[in-house]
């Protein structure tokens, strides 16, 4: 078991002929992901790597191949439309890797995708991987190994660092999810924690947050009230200077400055393990297995 993706995932790549899309489509194929289709408007009828059929629209691709998941590598001005197109075509899981999507676009995309009943991960995220089964996105496959540790993170390379250290210590992962750090994203820490709680293979969860916002505090409350599995948390930015402020409204709307200290306290109050350094995850996870 795992969360969100497994060996039954059939993947469609939006932007499969672009620089990033083609590079990562190859990497995903090599990892063993079932890449069943690509979409690039105007290139319908061609094949990627001589094998994967390319379509002009997501609707075509879904109809012909039955893809249930889509990963998006299109440039930022087109990303909002790509996410909506995927959800509209009946894709169940939409993963948007694209960085730089305007946040006002996301205020429209989010309710649209929800109405269609799809799950969105990202944008501006590294995607997810269920080691040994399927990889959707850009997380390097070779740093992961199958096992019982669930990983959810707001960052990209910091996730790789911690997964790499877990793997070297013999602690394999059920699924690793990078939810992305944009102000509006499709899937929250809580969505992932809830899925890990219900996943029989996951025994312990590692959660990496960052300063800013209140997502980590809300996640900590969820851990306290709804989880039987143990969770270990980390906050990046403990030494970051107070950020330049966004007028008055930022602090007022959240009622919180989103400091590392505040978040770490929330983790402790929820009975979570707190890793001070990435390295500390290893012992904290082992103690909780």
């Amino acid at each position: 078991m795992s969360i969100f993706i497994d060996s039954g995932t059939t993947l469609l790549v939006q932007g499969i002929t672009g620089r990033d899309g083609s590079f990562h489509a190859k990497q995903m194929l090599e990892y063993g992901t079932r890449v069943v289709a690509g979409v690039t408007p105007g290139k319908g009828g061609q094949r990627f790597e001589g094998n994967v059929p390319i379509f002009d629209t997501v609707a075509d691709a879904v109809e012909k191949t039955g893809a249930n998941t889509s990963v998006i590598y299109v440039p930022p001005p087109f990303a909002a439309d790509a996410m909506m197109e995927a959800a509209s075509a009946g894709i169940r899981l939409v993963v948007c890797i694209t960085e730089g999507v305007p946040v006002l676009d996301m205020t429209r995309v989010y309710p649209y995708v929800k109405e269609k009943g799809a799950r969105l991960i990202g944008p501006n995220c590294p995607g997810l991987i269920t080691p040994g089964e399927s990889k959707v996105g850009i997380i390097p496959g070779r740093i992961c190994t199958p096992g019982p540790v669930g990983v959810v993170s707001r960052s990209g390379t910091l996730t790789y660092e911690i997964v790499y250290q877990l793997t070297r210590a013999g602690l394999g992962q059920s699924t690793c999810v990078g939810i992305g750090g944009d102000p509006i994203n499709g899937t929250s820490f809580i969505d992932c924690l809830d899925a890990f709680e219900k996943d029989p293979k996951t025994k312990v969860v590692c959660m990496m947050g960052e300063i800013g916002g209140t997502d980590e505090q809300e996640a900590a409350e969820f851990v306290r009230d709804h989880m039987t599995k143990r969770v270990v948390g980390f906050i990046a930015g403990q030494t970051a200077p107070p950020g330049r402020r966004m007028g008055h409204a930022g602090a007022i709307i959240s009622g919180s400055a989103g400091t590392a200290a505040e978040k770490i306290q929330a983790f402790k109050d929820a009975g979570m393990g707190v890793a001070q350094r990435p390295k500390d995850f290893i012992d904290l996870v082992k103690e909780r297995m």
Partner: peptide
């Protein structure tokens, strides 16, 4: 990466 950069400063 911003997350790793912050974690490096913390370390």
């Amino acid at each position: 990466g911003a997350g790793l950069a912050m974690a490096t400063m913390d370390l």
